[in-house]
């Protein structure tokens, strides 16, 4: 019985020491910006640039304006997209066919509408 309480007490002290040590260790984990954070930031920046570059294209501007949308407005709304929306959109743009063929045109229009949808200008693709 006696040994039992002794064991318990020593376990208790070990725990206290361990917890104290952990407590001491924690503040030493300093406030550096982690690689995870930096990679995520860089990715979002690159995607924003992709979308902005797309919106700056002459043909895209013409398409937007033909539909009564101000390209500057659309550009401003890119800033309010979430990271997930940005990723989705920039991937669509990245995989657009390079040529100016009929299919490229169709997909281009689709992407524009997706962008407007996300930005709240239209409501054609409620799933996005």
């Amino acid at each position: 019985m006696k040994t039992n309480s002794l064991t318990r007490r020593s376990i208790g002290s070990i725990l206290i020491v361990a917890l104290t040590l952990m407590g001491v260790q924690a503040p030493a984990m300093a406030d550096i910006v982690s690689t995870d954070q930096l990679v995520a930031e860089q990715r979002a920046d690159a995607q924003r640039a992709t979308v902005a570059g797309f919106l700056a294209r002459e043909d895209v501007r013409a398409q937007l304006e033909a539909r009564g949308v101000n390209a500057e407005d659309a550009m401003q709304r890119v800033d309010s997209l979430t990271d997930t929306e940005l990723a989705e959109l920039s991937q669509q743009i990245d995989t657009l066919p390079a040529g100016e063929g009929a299919i490229g045109l169709v997909i281009g229009i689709l992407v524009i509408f997706m962008l407007l949808d996300i930005a709240g200008v239209t409501d054609i693709f409620p799933a996005i």
Partner: peptide
């Protein structure tokens, strides 16, 4: 012809 030509721009390139 259109789908064969237009939809594979990378191969063409």
């Amino acid at each position: 012809w259109l789908s064969g030509c237009v939809s594979t721009p990378q191969s063409r390139e």
